[in-house]
């Protein structure tokens, strides 16, 4: 897990991008209820690293981010694309410790737990 920024730095209802040590880009979102989600930043359709700039909200209760390029919605929880079953985002682990946001690959978290 890697610390990326202070929790307070995140705007409720918006995302930021973080660059991990291995060069992967992760999009981290803080929702209005202060819950956090992390998914890959790369848009699987246009291959640009912009998912962090998408709008968040819900579809039938499922929290989603909408790609700013061609507007497909992705589940923040599972990464699945709700408009095209063939595409999905990678999901990352995210937590807050001492007011700092930490992000890591899913596998890392499971190993720790």
């Amino acid at each position: 897990m890697q610390t990326i920024c202070a929790f307070d730095r995140l705007i409720p209802g918006r995302g930021v991008a973080a660059l991990l040590g291995d060069g992967t880009q992760v999009a981290v979102f803080r929702l209005l209820d202060d819950s956090l989600f992390a998914v890959s930043n790369r848009d699987p359709f246009m291959h640009a690293n912009v998912i962090s700039r998408g709008l968040v909200g819900d579809r039938g209760g499922e929290p989603v981010v909408v790609s700013p390029l061609l507007k497909q919605a992705f589940s923040l929880a599972s990464g699945a694309c709700l408009d095209d079953a063939s595409a999905a985002l990678e999901v990352y682990a995210v937590e807050v410790i001492d007011g700092e946001v930490r992000v890591g690959a899913r596998a890392e978290v499971e190993a720790v737990a």
Binding site: P12, G13, V50, L55
Partner: peptide, 21 residues
Amino acid sequence: GEQAALQDTNDHFLANLQRNG
């Protein structure tokens, strides 16, 4: 304030997003 979270991404960055980000 809270308005920032509502803006479409173009408005959020006050510029037009292009295909490569």
